[in-house]
Amino acid sequence: MLASLRIRGEWCASIYNGGGRFQSASADFYDNQSIDQLRRWQQPGDITDVPQARLFGGNGTAESTRYLDEADFIRLRNLTLGYTIPSQTTEKIGFSKLRVYLTSVNLLTFTDYKFEDPEARSDVNDSRNPGSTFYSSPPAKTFTIGLNINF
């Protein structure tokens, strides 16, 4: 049995959610709203970091540190498990070597980051905005099952 794994992580990093001013925009109709809208200011005396909702008013849509989040994470990037069938068995069926394996990419991610992907960076090829994301898609989880046969 052979196993290999690759883990990636990042600590003490922040990422700016460029889409936050649309996703957390106090009832603007452009995008679905994030769950933080449930913590919005509603009446005098409320203490919150989310502005009052104003339909079509766009309250709180200016760029702000409100959209800056800690992006610490640990990700199991690659995991491969493989097994080479003993030669006594493979020679009986006419093979010199037979190996079975399973590979997974982006299997697990541990993070408190509340948006799409703590490792994401700007989807736009824009070197002026490092450390920011704008509706970045998380990486796909992929699984591969393989068989290597030598005659």
Rank of each mutant, 00 (worst) to 15 (best):
M1V: 14
A3M: 11
A3K: 13
L5Q: 05
L5F: 14
I7F: 06
I7E: 01
R8W: 06
R8D: 14
R8E: 08
E10N: 13
W11G: 13
I15Y: 04
I15V: 11
N17L: 05
N17T: 08
G18A: 03
G19V: 10
F22D: 02
F22A: 05
Q23A: 02
Q23C: 02
A25E: 03
A25Y: 02
S26M: 04
A27G: 12
D28G: 15
F29D: 15
N32C: 09
S34R: 13
I35L: 14
D36Y: 07
L38E: 09
L38T: 15
R39M: 08
R39I: 09
Q42G: 07
D49W: 12
D49K: 13
F56G: 06
T61E: 10
A62T: 14
S64F: 05
R66H: 08
L68K: 10
L68W: 01
A71R: 07
F73G: 04
R77I: 03
N78T: 12
T80S: 12
L81K: 09
L81Q: 07
G82V: 00
I85Y: 03
I85R: 00
S87K: 07
Q88C: 04
T90M: 02
T90L: 06
T90N: 01
E91A: 12
G94I: 05
G94Y: 00
G94Q: 05
F95N: 00
F95Q: 11
S96H: 05
K97Q: 14
K97P: 08
K97C: 01
L98Q: 00
Y101R: 01
V105T: 04
V105Q: 13
L107D: 04
L107Q: 12
F110G: 01
F110A: 03
D112I: 03
D112Q: 07
D112H: 05
D112W: 03
K114Y: 00
K114N: 07
E116N: 15
D117I: 08
A120E: 02
A120Q: 03
S122C: 12
D123S: 10
N125F: 05
S127K: 09
R128L: 09
N129A: 12
P130D: 10
P130Y: 13
G131M: 09
G131P: 13
S132H: 11
S132T: 15
T133P: 06
F134C: 01
F134W: 14
F134S: 10
Y135G: 13
Y135P: 07
Y135R: 10
S136Q: 06
S136W: 00
S137Q: 03
S137K: 07
P138Y: 02
P139N: 08
F143P: 01
T144G: 00
T144E: 08
L147H: 09
L147G: 09
L147K: 09
N148V: 12
I149R: 02
I149F: 07
F151P: 13
F151D: 01
F151L: 08
F151C: 04
F151W: 10
